[in-house]
């Protein structure tokens, strides 16, 4: 495992824990898209079914379990424990527009036509667009709390570092997985506009608000 991959995983973990802590400490999930969080829970579940079939390393297994556990906890906080604070009126992205096309694509473009492999492929495609309900929510309300911005930034950094990891692996190991790379590129591009706002506003101490 190279440094990019490891830092990418840590950044992903940081994002997930940051969101959990934010909701828990503030006792509120205002400004957070429950739909994006449900999509991420679906992504982890579909991808990590190989926990039962394929052992890779203790690190790999632990991270997968933590990601899944945190992800489901977040969904539970939003839709049950702090349901009263959930901003459903602004969380109006139609997730079927993401789930249906990515599911169809997973059936058409995959490495191997087996149930686990199709689910893995579906999770890769779905992850690349799963943040859209959250970004849509931010654009609809015109702003995001600073901690939400940090969450989105860490999440964007994660896939960006994975791109460097894939360049590294291609160069030194001759390894490449085109499905993951293309989806990862799409995912990273979706964050670019946000990266710009984050660097020009949030890092200068301002709250992230979009021009009217």
């Amino acid at each position: 495992m190279n440094l990019f991959r490891f830092l990418g995983d840590l950044s992903h973990l940081l994002a997930i824990i940051l969101l959990l802590l934010k909701i828990w400490k503030s006792r509120s999930c205002a400004g957070i898209s429950g739909k994006s969080q449900v999509l991420f829970a679906v992504v982890f579940t579909a991808r990590y079914l190989d926990l039962f079939t394929n052992y890779i390393s203790l690190y790999n297994t632990c991270m997968k379990v933590v990601y899944i556990a945190c992800s489901f906890t977040t969904v539970w906080l939003i839709y049950s424990k702090f349901k009263a604070t959930y901003d459903g009126n602004h969380d109006t992205f139609r997730v079927e527009f993401l789930v249906v096309p990515t599911a169809i694509l997973a059936f058409l473009v995959n490495h191997d036509f087996t149930p686990l492999e199709i689910l893995w492929t579906f999770s890769i495609y779905l992850e690349s667009v799963a943040i859209l309900p959250q970004l849509f929510m931010v654009s609809k309300t015109g702003e995001a709390e600073t901690i939400t911005s940090h969450y989105l930034f860490a999440l964007g950094v994660y896939r960006t570092l994975y791109l460097f990891n894939w360049i590294w692996r291609y160069h030194f190991e001759g390894f490449f997985d085109l499905i993951a790379i293309v989806a990862g590129l799409v995912q990273t591009v979706l964050y670019c506009d946000f990266f710009y706002l984050y660097i020009t506003k949030v890092l200068k101490g301002k709250k992230l608000s979009l021009p009217a």
Binding site: R5, D9, H12, R47, D50, N54, I56, N60, M63, K64, Y67, H111, D112, E117, W120, Y162, N165, F176, D177, L178, A180
Partner: peptide
């Protein structure tokens, strides 16, 4: 690319 070998990334 050898999918049968499993996916070692997260």
């Amino acid at each position: 690319v050898e999918p049968s070998a499993g996916h070692d990334e997260l």
